[in-house]
């Protein structure tokens, strides 16, 4: 009986001490998410906001549009192209960051213990640096009068600057640049735990370098690969700052599209529906991630 009481007071103390944090987060983070879900099924207000009348219009407009004159229903092509761009750019960002991130993480993990902290710190600085500043930095490089175009013109390779800024390519370069540390860090954590004797064993058994990479290294660091991919894919899908600065308003992603509904678009239910959708996609990918990673973790 006494043991049970102690157990209970343990839990009670845990909740009591966590209470301020929980109240803060529920009030200013988690709770309002529910309001978003509610707003997505309300009717659009005259200017902004909502009318408290149940309506499926917000969700309807995610995919469809109704002709103003004859009320015919058709797919909202503009929306679809924004979704497609978001998914396409997020996948491409994930692949690019992996292509650069794996060798980088490998390089750091194979440095001598002393200099490893230094290389890791070099990755951490951009990680903690303001996303906006890093996006500006990329903008400096790729704009028409930026150093990239200037260098190419001076080298005589091109005569006119290449228009990169305000294109999908610019958004892609920017996202790959700002999210690269998010790929490197989990990959590094996985490679750091890697037992390099396994590679020796691989070579000992006549595997080529490529075979060792594909047959030994990649399968073992797979949890790190999945973690890195999720960490890059999720913020890419919800990106707002980078496409706004580098895409220049035309090349919108979901994040900008959502913002539009609360700004000029003045369609809060649609914006709320889009937000809920984005949240659901992210939660599902997180769920898949936890499933896959718990399945892949070796039982110790």
């Amino acid at each position: 009986m006494k043991g049970n009481g102690a157990q209970r007071s343990k839990g009670a103390n845990g909740w009591l001490l966590s209470a301020p944090a929980l109240v803060l987060l529920v009030f200013a983070a988690s709770g309002p998410l529910l309001i978003v879900a509610v707003y997505s099924v309300l009717e659009k207000g005259d200017y902004s906001g909502v009318r408290w009348i149940l309506s499926g219009d917000g969700w309807f407009r995610v995919l469809f549009e109704r002709d103003i004159f004859d009320q015919t229903v058709s797919f909202a092509d503009a929306n679809l192209s924004i979704f497609w761009r978001s998914v396409k750019l997020s996948i491409a960002t994930t692949l690019i960051t992996f292509a650069f991130g794996l060798p980088t993480a490998w390089f750091i993990a194979t440095r001598p213990a002393k200099s490893r902290a230094f290389w890791l710190f070099l990755i951490t600085i951009p990680f903690w640096t303001n996303l906006l500043i890093r996006t500006f930095a990329i903008m400096e490089v790729i704009r028409n009068e930026g150093i990239l175009n200037t260098a190419l013109i001076n080298a005589g390779l091109i005569s006119e600057p290449i228009q990169i800024l305000y294109t999908d390519t610019a958004v892609l370069i920017g996202m790959a640049y700002v999210y690269l540390p998010l790929m490197v860090l989990p990959l590094y954590a996985a490679i750091d735990r890697f037992d390099f004797r396994l590679i020796e064993a691989g070579y000992d058994l006549y595997a080529s370098r490529l075979q060792v990479l594909r047959g030994v290294i990649l399968p073992i660091i797979k949890p790190g690969i999945i973690a890195g991919s999720i960490l890059v894919f999720i913020p890419s899908l919800g990106a707002y700052v980078t496409p706004r600065v580098l895409g220049g308003g035309k090349n919108m992603m979901i994040g900008n599209f959502i913002e539009l509904q609360f700004g000029q678009g003045q369609n809060w239910p649609l914006g709320a529906a889009l937000s809920t959708l984005l949240l659901l996609v992210v939660l599902v990918s997180l769920l898949v991630y936890t499933r896959v990673s718990s399945r892949d973790t070796p039982h110790e």
Binding site: L25, A29, L33, V36, G238, Y240, A272, S275
Partner: peptide, 21 residues
């Protein structure tokens, strides 16, 4: 889960939620 929630939910969604609230 609640404490780490801001790390999981896309910031734009939290921003919209707070705007409304």
């Amino acid at each position: 889960m609640i404490i780490n929630q801001p790390l999981m939910v896309p910031e734009i969604v939290t921003a919209v939620a707070l705007l409304i609230f």
